[in-house]
């Protein structure tokens, strides 16, 4: 699976950069295009997902056959009593982080643009994976992505997601003790499945 950033992503990328609608100079326009090209070149996409049956308990929602229990009100509201869910993880890979790191030393003005491209690209990659899941599970469809740390779903849940998807082996995503993912441009999420 792969994605490419294109014209349609420009608006979002600019938004991540705090752009407030003044006229864009030719230099910035050019940098934006170059950053998107560079991003497309260095992304080494990784994607993994698994299907689970959900079990609703008093104190949380369980992913069947795992020890993971999702706590809090937000996730309960979000899943809207779905019977099943897809757990997913996508990443742009280590190369992307390294290139941003290099550019922040060499050309920070360009580095922040590439970084913003990464934020957009990883979301786009997650969208593409959801699309793939939907095709596989039709007529059911995945709902909106929900990630650890959203609402009152504890950030610690990240540890369960990473373990259950075996992301270290499958896509090379590891977690540090503060539950930050590495590579940094990575997303984990749970989506309910609906008719």
């Amino acid at each position: 699976m792969n994605i490419e950033l294109d014209e349609s992503d420009k608006k979002e990328i600019l938004r991540y950069l705090g752009y407030r609608g003044t006229e864009l100079t030719p230099k910035i326009e050019g940098d934006l295009l170059r950053a998107m090209d560079l991003a497309n070149e260095i992304i080494r996409p990784g994607a993994v997902w698994k299907l689970f049956t959900l079990e609703y308990f008093e104190d949380g929602i369980g992913l069947k056959n795992t020890s993971c229990v999702l706590k809090g009100e937000s996730i309960r509201k979000h899943l809207k009593e779905a019977d099943r869910c897809a757990l997913l993880c996508v990443t742009l890979g280590r190369d992307f982080d390294e290139e941003v790191e290099r550019l922040m030393v060499k050309k920070p003005g360009f580095g922040v643009i590439l970084n913003a491209c990464g934020i957009q690209a990883v979301e786009k990659l997650a969208d593409a994976l959801q699309h793939e899941i939907n095709e596989r599970l039709a007529p059911q469809k995945t709902g909106v992505r929900f990630s650890p740390g959203y609402g009152d779903l504890p950030l610690e849940t990240q540890g369960d997601f990473i373990r259950i998807l075996n992301t270290e082996k499958t896509v090379g995503v590891r977690l540090n003790e503060n539950y930050l993912m590495n590579p940094m441009k990575s997303v984990t999420a749970i989506c309910g499945l609906y008719e």
């Binding site: 600019l14 950069l17 407030r20 003044t22 100079t25 050309k107 003005g109 360009f110 580095g111 922040v112």
Partner: peptide, 12 residues
């Protein structure tokens, strides 16, 4: 009037 990348380009 300008945004982050431009600020950084100027700084550089």
């Amino acid at each position: 009037k300008i945004f982050l990348p431009q600020l950084l380009n100027s700084a550089q």
